[in-house]
């Protein structure tokens, strides 16, 4: 077993070179490089954490804005609805007015026309009485050879018209 057989002649060399190379490894790799590698990992993790936090904040902000937009949208919709309702009301009122005015004017015209018609009828009736009276005088004069006085003939015509 060389480990024991060679112990006395090799132990100093073994210990010396182990301390040399383990020391180099410890100071160069363990103390020099490992902390940098771990720092890189820590930096990456903190960056990932910061990015996640930023993303979460951005999402929250977007949610908030969407909520605000939703509220604003609802308000706008209500406002628009109110405007439409008001315009409808206005239009209905205005058309009502116009219709009422037009109706009034029609009524007026119709009344005037009726008065006129009545007047014309009355005139025509009066004229009819005159014509009928003259015709009755003529007829009586021609048939019976009797001259009837005008008021008398007029009264007879009126009686006949009243009997209808």
């Amino acid at each position: 077993m060389p480990q024991i057989a060679q112990l006395s002649e090799t132990i100093t060399s073994q210990v010396f070179w182990l301390l040399v190379f383990f020391g180099i490894t410890f100071f160069v790799i363990g103390r020099g490089m490992v902390p940098k590698i771990m720092q890189t990992v820590a930096d990456r993790e903190s960056q990932i954490g910061a990015d996640l936090t930023a993303a979460k904040a951005a999402r929250d902000a977007a949610d908030q804005q969407e909520e605000a937009w939703r509220v604003r949208e609802a308000q706008n919709r209500d406002a628009a609805h109110a405007i439409v309702t008001e315009a409808k009301g206005n239009a209905a009122a205005r058309s009502q007015d116009v219709l009422a005015t037009a109706q009034a004017r029609f009524d007026q015209e119709v009344e005037a026309a009726e008065i006129q018609i009545d007047h014309a009828r009355r005139e025509a009736l009066a004229e009819l009485e005159t014509v009928a009276t003259e015709a009755a005088q003529d007829i009586v004069a021609k048939i019976a050879n009797i001259n009837v006085a005008r008021p008398e003939a007029h009264r007879a015509v009126q009686e006949a018209l009243a009997r209808g």
Binding site: T10, T12, S13, Q14, F16, W17, V20, F21, F22, T25
Partner: peptide, 21 residues
């Protein structure tokens, strides 16, 4: 007078150090 012969053992310590590096 402490013997520090560079042995095959020391050589493989060196190789280990280099490979690890």
């Amino acid at each position: 007078g402490i013997n520090i012969a560079f042995t095959n053992s020391a050589l493989w310590m060196l190789i280990t150090t280099l490979v690890l590096f």
